[in-house]
């Protein structure tokens, strides 16, 4: 049960936006959106749960990485374009530096066989994780044979026939969206 404390009536300053999304960036391991909700809704109380979910729904529907869209949206909502810029930099600045340093470290030690094979083990598990995530997202298709067919067709076109994503989305997507419009999906 989430407590609904009163929402702050004062809009966050640029500095507060930066610090909040900086916190999201450095604490988010494996998925940043749950952290964004925690920081923005639970800790800072800039938005209530409902408002955050509504923003998230719109941000998922516009092109781009969801967490970036959400940070930019929230920054822009409170402080306009400059608010969007500080939220964006807050979110990505530190993690960007960290991954580059980690990658540099990996390359510095990649002469060591154990380091190389550790990396390999890690990427095998990460691939399995992506696969598990895809299966989880595919679960709602269980009772919709058309969705399963579309999903498999898109996978085969992309993986085996190397069709560009744009064409897969254009061809598959227009069929899928038409079916969805007629209530078949």
């Amino acid at each position: 049960m989430r407590h609904h404390s009163p929402i702050n009536s004062r809009a966050p300053t640029h500095r507060e936006l930066f610090v909040a999304f900086f916190t999201v960036g450095i604490s988010a391991f494996g998925g940043a959106l749950p952290w964004a909700r925690r920081v923005v809704v639970d800790d800072r109380k800039w938005l209530d749960d409902k408002a955050f979910t509504e923003i998230l729904t719109v941000c998922q529907a516009i092109p781009g990485p969801n967490v970036i869209n959400t940070a930019v949206f929230i920054g822009a909502k409170f402080r306009g374009i400059s608010g969007a810029v500080v939220s964006f930099l807050g979110l990505l600045g530190a993690p960007f530096a960290i991954v580059l340093i980690l990658s540099q470290l990996y390359h510095a030690f990649s002469d060591i066989a154990a380091v190389r094979s550790g990396m390999k083990g890690m990427s095998i598990v990460a691939t399995a994780y992506l696969f598990a995530m895809s299966l989880k997202l595919a679960k709602p298709f269980q009772r919709k044979p058309i969705a399963v067919v579309l999903c498999i067709a898109a996978a085969i076109a992309s993986a085996y026939f190397h069709v560009h994503m744009g064409y897969v989305l254009l061809a598959g997507g227009s069929v899928a969206v038409a079916l969805s419009k007629w209530g078949k999906l």
Binding site: Q60, T127, L130, P140, A147, A153, A159, V168, G173, L185
Partner: peptide
């Protein structure tokens, strides 16, 4: 409507990526 329609396609592309 669009999100529901695109879901099977994007999941298919994710599976292709894993493959």
């Amino acid at each position: 409507i669009v999100l529901r329609g695109l879901a099977p396609i994007t999941v298919g592309l994710m599976l292709a990526g894993c493959t």
